[in-house]
Design a protein around this nucleic acid. Structure first.
Lengths: 381, 381
DNA sequence: GCGCATTACTAATGCGCATTAATGAATCGG
DNA sequence: CCGATTCATTAATGCGCATTAGTAATGCGC
C-alpha cells in the first residue's frame, strides 16, 4: 500500500516545484487531542522539523546554531502560540541518557523504621540530585516490579537509571557485583569494602569516636567502657576501632573489659552491673548508635536505675545521634552523623561515575556534639 | 545491502541447523559500557528483537503471544543473564507504559520542613506503589531538569512517568491544567477543586472537625472557641466548616465570637484574653493544625500562663496532630490525619487513571483521638 | 496432493526528537 | 563569469522499543 511512494525514483526528469513543497504527511491536529509536536510547529512556521529542533534546543553555548534571526523568531512564535512542549521521552531517547538516578533501599518498607533511619539521607540526596539536574527513581527492595519479586534479578530494574545509589545494611553483594562488573555506575551509602570496585561514601566513625573518647580523657576520665551490640556491621566495628584508638591516644590501656558486647543490651546491661563497674573505677560509658538505639537505651535505663546521676556520678557518651524519642532533654555528648551531607556526597560521587570520572572522597566527617552528659569524673572515694 | 540474506531461498538442499540463522548487524557490547538492548538479548537467544519484545512484554492477559515455551525460556534466560531492563524512554515513546509513577512536590526542598510535612505521605505512596508494581520517580520543584529551570515547561518532565502525583500547597494551576487537558493522568494530594477535571484525594477535615466539636458538646460544653490562623487554604476552611457544622449539630449558636482568627497567634492569643473568654463562659478551645502549629502552641502557652489547668479548668482540642516537639505528654484530644492511607489512596486513584478508569473516592476519613485534654466543663460559679 | 488454518517467528515501521550529511543559495576572489 | 566559500535550511538517520504485516513451516481434512 506504500508502493506508490517508490515512484519518486522515477521523477528525475520531472520539474518539481523547488523545495518549498512540504513532504506528504504533516501530522495536523487530527482529533484535537495530544499536545503539539515539533512537526506541527514546523508547519506553522513554514520550516522543517529539523529547523525547529535546532532552534528550540539551541544551547547557550558559545557557538549558536546557524539559524537566521528571522527564522528563529518565526519558530519561537509558532512554538509559543501552539504551546509546544518537548516530549521528555523522545528527547531522552535521542540523547541516550535519561537524567535519572536510582535509589535502592533494602530495608523492609516498614514506615516508622524507614522514617527514622533513611529519610535524612534522602533529603541530602534529593537536594544534590536536584541541584545537578537529575531526577530520582525510588526502587524498593520489597517492591515486586511487575516481574521478578525478590528474585535474583530484582536488582536489574535499577539499570533503568543512569546510575544507582544503594542504602541499607544487608545488601545482596552478589547482585551488586554484577552491576559493578558491567560498568553500571553504583554507589553505596555506607562503608563497604568487601566488594572490590564498589564505590561508597561513609561517615568517618573512627575519627568521630576517637574524638569522643579524647574528650572524656581530657575531662580526666581514665576508665571508659564502650557498650555495643553484637553485630559486626562496619558502622559498629568502625566505632569500636575509633574507641580503642582514642583510648590508646590518651594512654589508657584498652584491655578486654573496655568493651561490653551485648546480644541483648536491655537484659545484659543491668543496674547492678553498672554499679559494679563504677565501683570498679569506671567513670564514663559510651554507647554505639544503632537503628534501634538499644545500647543507649539500656545504658540510660541502667544508670538511672542504679541511682546514679548523669553528669555528676558518671559521664555518658553516644557514638551517634539519639533516637527521636530520646532526643529531648539530656542532650548526649557525642557526635552527629551529617546525613544530609552524606547523601549529597553520595550523589556527587554517583554523578561523577555517571559522567565517566573516577572521583573519590569517601569519608565525610561527623560533627562533635558537646551535649550535657559529660563532666569531670568523680574523685575516687 | 540486505541481499545476501535472500540466499536462504537457495539453501533448500542444505541441512542447516534449523532457524538458527542470525540477521546481519548485532550491536554487540562494543565498549563494555551501556546497558544491554533487546537486540543483544536477541542475539544471545538466537531470535529476533521482535521476539524478545514479544516475550518480555507478554501481558498476563488471557491470550498469550504465539511464542513457544522453549523460545520463551531461552529469551528469558538470555535477558536475565545480561541483566536486561527496558529503557523507559524508548518504551514510552513506542506508546506503552513504563511502570513509573511520578511524584512532584512544589515545596522548597527545605529539609526539616519537608521532613515534617511530606514524609508520612510518601511512606503510603511508596507502599502502595510498590504493591502495585510501580516504581516512583521523584521530581523536585526546584530541580532544573537540565533544560529550562522553572520555565513554563518545568512540569513537562513528569510526562516521562505514566502519571503523576502532585503535593504541595502552591501548585502552578496553569501548567497542571495543560497536563490535565492533554489527558495526562494527574492526581493532587489534597483537596483542589479550583481546577475542573483535576483528580484529588484529601482528608475529610470537615467530618473530623465536626466530630471533635461533637465530643466536646457531649461532655457538656456549650461555649467553644476555634483558634485559627489567617490563611484561607482549603485545610483551614474545611476545619472551620466542620467546626461550625459541629456547633450547629449540637444546637449551639455559632456567632462571630466562636472563631478566633489570628494573623499572629502568639501575640494575639494572650493569657488575659483567654482569661477573659473563660470568664465570659467559654469552657473549651480547639485549635487548627498547621505546618508550624502556631495556633496550638499559642493556645497552650496562653492557657498555661493564665494559670488554668487543662482537663480541669478548660478543655482543649486540636484539629489534627500535634507538632513533633509537643507530641510527648499531654496528648491532645482531636484527630489524626491518616497520612499513610492518604498517600496510598492517591496512588490507587492514580493507578486507576493510568489504566483508563475513572474511579473516584476522594475523601479519606481521619481518626478520632480521645487524648487527655478534654473533660466535662467546670460548673459555672 | 491441494487448499486452508494454525503456529512460530521475523521484517519493517514509526513514536518524537537530536544530529549529521547533504543541498541550495548567496557571496567572494580572481 | 566560474569555482570556492560561507550560510541557511532540509533530508535522512537512528535512539530502543512495541506493534503489525508478512513469511515459513506444519497440521488437517478431503
Amino acid at each position: 500500500m506504500r508502493i506508490n511512494e517508490s515512484v519518486s525514483e522515477g521523477t528525475s526528469g520531472v520539474d518539481q516545484p523547488k523545495k518549498r513543497a512540504k513532504p506528504g504527511r504533516n501530522p495536523a491536529p487530527a482529533g484535537r487531542t495530544s499536545r503539539p509536536r515539533q512537526a506541527e510547529v514546523a508547519g506553522l512556521a513554514g520550516v522543517s522539523q529539523a529547523t525547529v529542533s535546532l532552534v528550540l534546543s539551541a544551547r547557550g553555548d558559545g557557538r549558536a546554531a546557524a539559524i537566521s534571526e528571522e527564522t528563529r523568531q518565526r519558530v519561537l512564535d509558532a512554538a509559543r502560540s501552539l504551546g509546544y512542549v518537548p516530549d521528555p521521552a523522545a528527547r531522552r531517547l535521542a540523547a541516550a541518557s535519561n537524567n535519572l538516578l536510582g535509589v535502592f533501599s533494602f530495608t523492609a518498607t516498614f514506615p516508622t523504621d524507614v522514617q527514622h533511619s533513611y529519610y535524612p539521607f534522602l533529603v541530602g540526596v534529593e537536594q544534590e540530585a536536584a541541584a545537578r539536574g537529575y531526577d530520582l527513581v525510588l526502587f524498593t527492595g520489597s517492591s515486586t516490579g511487575g516481574a521478578g519479586a525478590t528474585g535474583p534479578d530484582a536488582l536489574s530494574r535499577v539499570r533503568l537509571a543512569d546510575g544507582c545509589l544503594f542504602l541499607g545494611r544487608h545488601v545482596p553483594l552478589a547482585e551488586l557485583k554484577r552491576l559493578v562488573a558491567d560498568g553500571f555506575p553504583v554507589v553505596h551509602l555506607g562503608r563497604r569494602e568487601e566488594l572490590e570496585g564498589l564505590a561508597w561514601v561513609g561517615a568517618d566513625y573512627v575519627s568521630a569516636s576517637r574524638e569522643v573518647v579524647g574528650h572524656l580523657a581530657e575531662l580526666g576520665h581514665r576508665r571508659i567502657v564502650l557498650v555495643r551490640e553484637d553485630d559486626d556491621a562496619p558502622p559498629s566495628t568502625d566505632r569500636q576501632q575509633g574507641f580503642l584508638d582514642g583510648l590508646a591516644a590518651a594512654g589508657i590501656a584498652g584491655g578486654p573489659g573496655a568493651v561490653l558486647r551485648c546480644a541483648d543490651p536491655a537484659r545484659e546491661l543491668t543496674a547492678p552491673r553498672v554499679r559494679a563497674l563504677v565501683a570498679d573505677g569506671v567513670t564514663a560509658f559510651v554507647a554505639e548508635e544503632t537503628d534501634t538505639g538499644a545500647a543507649w537505651r539500656a545504658l540510660n535505663a541502667a544508670v538511672r536505675e542504679a541511682g546514679l546521676s548523669c553528669p555528676g556520678d558518671v559521664s555518658l557518651g553516644l557514638l551517634g545521634s539519639p533516637p527521636a524519642d530520646l532526643a529531648a532533654r539530656p542532650v548526649p555528648m557525642g557526635f552527629d552523623i551529617p546525613r544530609h551531607r552524606l547523601g549529597a556526597a553520595a550523589v556527587r560521587l554517583l554523578a561523577a561515575l555517571v559522567s565517566g570520572e573516577e572521583a573519590h572522597e569517601p569519608l565525610v566527617a561527623c560533627e562533635f556534639r558537646a551535649g550535657e552528659t559529660a563532666g569531670p569524673p568523680v574523685p575516687p572515694p
